[in-house]
Amino acid sequence: MSGLLVEKELKTYEFAHLSFQEYLAASQIKELQQESILIDNFQDPWWAETIRLYAAQNDATSLIQAGIETPTVHSLVLALDCQQESLKVDPETREQLDTILEQGLESNDPGIATLVAEVKLSRRLNNLTTMDDNLYIDSFYITCAEYQLFMDEDDLLYSGEHFAAGSAKQPITEVSWLNGMRFCLWLTAKASSLTRNSASESSVFFFRLPTWVISEKAFPIRVIAWTKGFQEIKGTES
């Protein structure tokens, strides 16, 4: 057990890393067939990694249904993670989740459209390409649906404006450098509610545009993120 547990106080021990606890919890739940515990706690972020680890070893259909039945950004992101990592998912459940995420972006219901766009943005922020421990680059352009979230909250720039029907998944284009910078400031403030482990200071993201866009008058948006420990070195990105 050396290295697995650490003595927090006299005769009081805890796991050296939360990942050990999450993995063992997932394994124990599988062995005792207590999946209902995970379903009951599907909305609790504390259980998210245990749920992902369990899904990777099992049929995740019931877990995904739990996310669909009580749709929030957290539950739909977690349901999609379970779908992608699981050993097995019922085809109808897979199709149901895919339909929600595909059609929701173009929904006429603002609440649904916003929810699904936030799911898409959350997935983006949780899957940035790692350059080093503190520097991350987004490999894809921001979509119209994701940029709409910013537009809806910035009445000074975009009062009542909306992307064209059918273009939700297309990259947002013709964005000025100034508006791109405003988007990055908005995203920095927004990201803490959309990324995993946001309570950790070291995992708080700050966003900016790639340096090449400074010379452009209008362009699609791709972002670069860094954490508090990052000291920018010239030439680390393009």
Rank of each mutant, 00 (worst) to 15 (best):
L97M: 09
I100C: 00
S139Y: 03
L128Q: 08
R94D: 14
V119A: 01
H162K: 09
S200W: 11
E35Y: 05
S202N: 08
A165H: 11
R222L: 12
L5W: 14
F207K: 03
V213Y: 04
L10R: 15
Y147H: 07
S198Q: 07
T99H: 08
D132R: 08
L32F: 12
W46L: 09
P71S: 04
L149I: 08
A199E: 14
E106A: 15
L76W: 06
Q148F: 01
S176E: 06
E232K: 11
H17C: 02
G3M: 00
E49R: 15
I221R: 15
Q33C: 01
W186G: 01
L5C: 06
E237W: 13
I64D: 02
G111Q: 15
S27W: 06
K190T: 12
G67T: 01
L128P: 00
K190L: 10
D90N: 15
W177P: 00
E95N: 13
S198A: 15
S215Y: 14
K11Y: 03
R124E: 04
E153Y: 05
D109S: 09
K11V: 00
S176M: 07
L53M: 13
I172Y: 01
L194T: 05
A165W: 12
W47H: 04
M1G: 08
P171W: 10
I233P: 00
E102F: 10
Q96M: 03
M131A: 06
V77E: 09
D155R: 15
A218V: 14
H162V: 00
L178W: 05
F205W: 12
Q21K: 15
I233R: 14
L24P: 06
T143M: 11
D90T: 05
E31P: 00
L87F: 07
I112G: 01
